[in-house]
Design a protein around this nucleic acid. Sequence first.
DNA 1: ATATATTTTTAGGGTTATCTAAATATTAAT
DNA 2: ATTAATATTTAGATAACCCTAAAAATATAT
Lengths: 220, 220
Amino acid sequence: MKLSTAEENYLKAIFKISEKAKKSASTNAIAKHLSTSAASVTDMLKRLAEKELINYEKYKGVTLKTEGIKQATQLIRKHRLWEVFLVKKLRFSWDQVHEIAEQLEHIESKELIMRLDAFLDYPKFDPHGDPIPNADGKFTIRSQTPLSDMHKGQEGKLVGVKDHQTEFLKYLNSLNVKLGTIITVIDSVPYDGSMNVILDGKNEIMITAAVAQNLLIRKG
Amino acid sequence: MKLSTAEENYLKAIFKISEKAKKSASTNAIAKHLSTSAASVTDMLKRLAEKELINYEKYKGVTLKTEGIKQATQLIRKHRLWEVFLVKKLRFSWDQVHEIAEQLEHIESKELIMRLDAFLDYPKFDPHGDPIPNADGKFTIRSQTPLSDMHKGQEGKLVGVKDHQTEFLKYLNSLNVKLGTIITVIDSVPYDGSMNVILDGKNEIMITAAVAQNLLIRKG
DNA sequence: ATATATTTTTAGGGTTATCTAAATATTAAT
DNA sequence: ATTAATATTTAGATAACCCTAAAAATATAT
Ligand SMILES: [Mn+2]
Ligand SMILES: [Mn+2]
Ligand SMILES: [Mn+2]
Ligand SMILES: [Mn+2]
């Protein structure tokens, strides 16, 4: 089934919202995610339901049907592969690639994605540490903990970030925190959740709770 | 100025038609080029004229204004750079890349094109031998002659093809004719314009006039 | 020069994807 | 259980592109 860019974006939004909330996506949540009006969302939901891509009942929120999941997953696969390309091959910084990948993900060609995947050597994770679904839509699962849940003395490697905003990523750049950085918790302040950590066994820095919540660590 | 995909395609069509015909582009020529109706073309021409991208007078055909030329040229630059990427990096065959490049050319990011250009080592020609305009819109000019205009005993290198259709390119593949192939004219038949040629000093083959007209040779 | 053929434009519509404002349904609070 | 707040849908428009059929302008042929 050939979908429009708008339809694809809605499916991806529904996928991401229900993945995070672990329940059906509400009209307002979709509207917010896509920076559009609730009325426009209702409009589109009717059309997506008509095409059998989603389960939609008035006032009840939506979930993706099998074909909707497949389409959303493929879109995410394309988005993340392109992000890898932009960072690994074109040497973009991880804070510059999301917007461009938002466009590239809609390019339609099975062959292109197959070859891109091979060219990049079948990456399993994107530049933000997000898993890249394979051609069958399977995601690699990885055990990870938000830094904010770790305790004094614990150590691990930064494997992902929750927040993808340029602002946040640039701040991490300025702290010299990147994927692969080894983070050791020196202590955490119960009062405000801030933490003192050591990066790669070298520099000690202070990290606020807001930042710690968005850093995903693989312990050990 | 931010243009829609449709607007960009019209500008490119007008550019190519007037380049080839060396005069203004007619409504019908544009319609044919874009496989759309003449009515739709008139509709779009009004909008492009409104945006000061073209010179348009009812019934008189259109030419591009400065900004229209700039936009069309940049689009061609992007198309051809992507084609180089697809062939050189993703190992597509030259007959498979045009359709995908038609999509990729509309991705908007100055930075992306700059980096792609560098990644590809600043190519001057695309996989079909067409010149890639530089960032300022300048095309490299190259002396070239259709094989059909060459005479017995003359020799040269294949540097481009006029016809870009998959059908034609696949036929060339089957003849083992590619860019860079040295072609020596053994003789040409005045009756039907067909020619006998030698490829890279090895195999002798026969080429019809229709094919010879679409092969561009740099003599010597 | 007039008739005929061709090209181009206009008229009238359709689809997709938006929007704002108003109406209705659902949820939360008293 | 009403009422108030919030969420969602409907109503009515608009803009961008596209269409076919009909009208008008231009080009060609006799
Ligand atoms: Mn992204
Ligand atoms: Mn990412
Ligand atoms: Mn092409
Ligand atoms: Mn080309």
